[in-house]
Computed example of a mutant assay.
Amino acid sequence: MKAIAQDVYGSADVLRLREVDRPSIGDDEVLVQVRAAGVDPGVWVCMTGRPYGVRVAFGLTRPKVSVRGRALAGVVVAVGAGVQRFKPGDEVYGTSPRSGTFAEYAAAPAKRLAPKPPRLSFEQAAAVPISAVTALECVRDGGHVHAGQRVMVIGAAGGIGSFAVQIAKASGAKVTGVCGTGKVDLVRSFGADEVIDYTQEEVDRDGPSYDVIIDLAGCRPLSLLRRALTPRGTLVLAGGGHDAGGLLGGYTRQLRAPFVSMFTSQRLRGVTSKERAQELEELAELIESGAVTPAIDRTYPLADAPDAIRYLAEGHPAGKIVVTVGSGPSTDAP
């Protein structure tokens, strides 16, 4: 099968479109013919091996998984002996941590897949599994957002932020989005009640007035964010700062958060995506109700996946970037 793969860490220049073996599946796995794959900062991290601390998990000297990509939407072509939830022909979305998704086929654990929401195209569905799941966990588990609260989303125009604004609004909160000048109207279209243009004003302009702040940008010090938070408010940190350099990049803030919380009435929490079917099924309900719709900035064909990652690395995409892989029924399924 065709796939975007690499043998060494580096920039997008190390990626090649080449023929690789189609992945085999275990008893609890599903083989998916990939129609579209999401592009997120985690793809950049696995490609570059930065920040360097991630190499403990992804490979010390070279990537353990050579094919890039993690999120997918596609059609089931085969299931393992222990899989009962899916059958060939089912349309699914989810993640494939073992085989990569910038490829014509991917092997994915059944527990990381869910039925694709009928309302979405494959391209839209591929935008959901990592970014929207992270946003859901920021709003629900990290911030415990509920009706009547004031919520700020920093990085509101990005992949996670575009979902976080919508999910917070669906929870009944009054939402302020933070973004650059050119994306103010876009963030309002997500449902934000107010928008702060960070090129003109800082996030603490209104003083300690937010019950929950979800920071996805990763570039502001904790002290500044806490100034915008109510005395018993919650600061949720997710993503951001992957390219900040050093051993852990911008993720040091997430590690510091629990220790800072020990000495203040404010709660500081770091969030990472769990990538489970349960969250995908919850999101499907929000999507089918019309409360959440993926925002796609650009799509790229599989051969141009390196350009998709270059565009992501430039920063500030408006919504999600997606790689399209194939269309039509599989003609060579095992």
Rank of each mutant, 00 (worst) to 15 (best):
V45S: 00
R68W: 05
G249C: 07
C179L: 07
T181C: 04
V236G: 12
P129C: 03
R35F: 15
L17N: 01
T101V: 06
G26R: 13
Y93L: 15
I4G: 06
P88F: 08
G182L: 08
L302E: 06
A228I: 10
A333M: 03
G94K: 00
G53M: 12
G241V: 06
Q254R: 15
V83M: 04
R70E: 06
E201H: 15
S99G: 01
T324A: 11
G94C: 03
A173M: 10
K2P: 04
A73Y: 03
L268H: 14
G207L: 11
A318W: 09
A157D: 08
V175I: 07
Y52R: 15
L247F: 15
S171F: 11
S327E: 15
D28S: 15
R227W: 12
C179P: 02
A114H: 02
K274C: 08
G218I: 03
D193R: 05
A108Q: 05
P115C: 02
E285I: 07
Y300Q: 03
A295I: 03
E201S: 14
G233I: 09
K169I: 09
H316A: 14
F102S: 11
S121G: 04
S96H: 02
T61S: 13
S273P: 01
V203L: 14
A36P: 05
L17G: 01
R55P: 13
A125N: 00
K274P: 12
L216E: 04
V212G: 03
I25C: 13
A71E: 15
G241H: 01
P109M: 03
V260P: 04
R227T: 09
P51L: 12
L248H: 11
R112K: 06
V323W: 02
E282W: 09
Y52Q: 12
R98K: 14
R188P: 08
E314G: 15
I196D: 07
P221I: 10
T230W: 01
A257G: 01
Y251W: 14
T48D: 02
A244Q: 08
D193A: 15
S66C: 06
Q278D: 14
A103T: 01
P231W: 12
Q166P: 12
R256H: 13
I296P: 01
R140M: 05
T293W: 06
G319I: 03
G148H: 07
V128Q: 00
Q6A: 09
S289N: 07
A81K: 14
A156I: 08
I160P: 04
F102I: 00
R298C: 01
R310C: 01
A156D: 09
R119D: 08
P221D: 15
D40T: 15
F163R: 05
P334W: 02
G180T: 09
R98P: 00
A37T: 00
A170E: 08
K174A: 14
R269K: 15
V128C: 00
D13T: 03
L283Y: 11
Y311Q: 09
L222C: 05
V292Q: 04
W44D: 13
L72C: 08
F263H: 14
